[in-house]
Design a protein around this nucleic acid. Sequence first.
RNA 1: GGCGGAUUAGUGUAGUGGCCUAGCACGUAGCUCUCUCACGGCUUAGACCCGGGUUCGAUUCCCGGAUCCGCUGCCA
Length: 506
Amino acid sequence: MAEKKVRVRFAPSPTGPLHIGGVRTCLYNYLFAKKNGGDLLLRIEDTDSQRFVPGAEDYIIESFKWLGIKFDEGVGVGGDNGPYRQSERREIYKKYVQQLLDAGYAYYAFDTPAELEAKRQETPNFQYDSHTRMSGVNSLTLPADEVKRRIEAGEKYVVRVKIQPDEDIEVDDMVRGKVVINSNILDDKVLYKAADELPTYHLANIVDDHLMGITHVIRGEEWLPSAPLHVLLYRYFGWADTMPRFAHLPLLLKPEGNGKLSKRDGDRLGFPVFPLEWHDPASGAISSGYRESGYQPEAVVNFLALLGWNPGIDQELFSMDELINLFSIDRVSKSGARFNYEKGIWFNHEYLIKKSDEEVAKLFVPILKEKGFECDLAKLTYIVSLVKERINFPKDLWDQTSFFFVAPTEYDEKSLKKRWKEESPKCLTELMEVLKGLSDFSKVEENEQIVLDWVASKGYNLGTVMNSFRITLVGAAKGPHIFNIIDVLGKEETLARVERALTVIK
RNA sequence: GGCGGAUUAGUGUAGUGGCCUAGCACGUAGCUCUCUCACGGCUUAGACCCGGGUUCGAUUCCCGGAUCCGCUGCCA
């Protein structure tokens, strides 16, 4: 029999900006799907009307667009298994809730939130399960006509799953192997809320995965404890034979200290935890994003891919195609991965270097504009070529090249102390004459040779001359090759800078 | 508390009974290149959670402990 076509899904809840951990989960789903010639669907799990945040759905779609992760089906792209928004699937869920009710695998419960809260207060480890359900207000304890009466009266009930006790449930996880849990410790989870006519995650998830033909459920480790419930639900529905395979991914942990990565860590340590900048509609607060911080999408993908998975070879830089080709679930690690954003910076650095000088120059244009400067692309490309490998982000370009656009007005004291010698003024005055004799500053190598010969003929110390010269042009002992600098600056500006420095530096 | 998961240098990880005097990368320190600062190259320091057991031999298998993580909601 031919293998079923692989179908996986990413199913976020639109409760705010997409966390970077969610991005990684989706990436793994994508890699797995593409590796196996399958489809990736995007399903929006908006079954919690209380926590819905407007704009979150668009944010999710735009994030993956930026990252180069494409969905084959789902919200934003359509498909034959829609609707893909759970809030639009109410009628479907009702039918399946009824199926469970009819089969005796679920029951109505009328306990109010206050009553449940009281029970939790009274009993230390209270949970609604096979031991306690008979003391609840539900269709198991109430006469049938009373249940009917309450429902018809519009009383807000919930439907709970009726977990069958004393059963060992085995979850065969692709990452962790077999995990066995006894059904006695499971509680009778709420499957459906009459109040908003919506199912909870557990029900909606199983129904949708089944209806949408999902073959593999790849999700975060926080779902591992509820996996047995999901297995049971497949059984109660009679879908055990087509149940998807599960793979629970390790969590992303804080860079330091304990706990899983949170938004606050990003604020505290100065790195984004969201793919895109997010403006919270309620509070107006802004959270930084990888895109706006100058990360290249390829770098983010590469970095994330290697946080919890590795191909077992020493190579670390991979294109999306290479990742797809190499990806396999059995090389996903089991333990949580600390989020090492410094490594992320390194990845960005590498990807920026990979880009052509012109591409990087284009990234520089808006930054330059913000500083109030414009520069034609050819010249900017040349400037970028001189400093490209020393930057981690496009914005670093300004720190590296600002002196090209703004002549130094003051001179770095440390540099002066170390490099400015007593004979510097004399050397530079003479050097100016040599520079004046140069026909074309763009003849970098030729000019260098001329100056070097001159320095040698005078018996001057090369370091002294060059460093002093550099300070007058840049304002400090830093920057690219000096003959490239004067090439960009041009003869007039170069001479002006030296002259000015000679009057200012004492 | 209960249940489940995890545990190789600061971090991400490779290795899976002897090839491990434990590999790679980021970060750190140093050297080098050089007119400077970077980049690059080279090098140094740095780890198998602890205790038992199995075995001729355990980082690798088993058990226990510790620690960390997750779940324990009419959230997902």
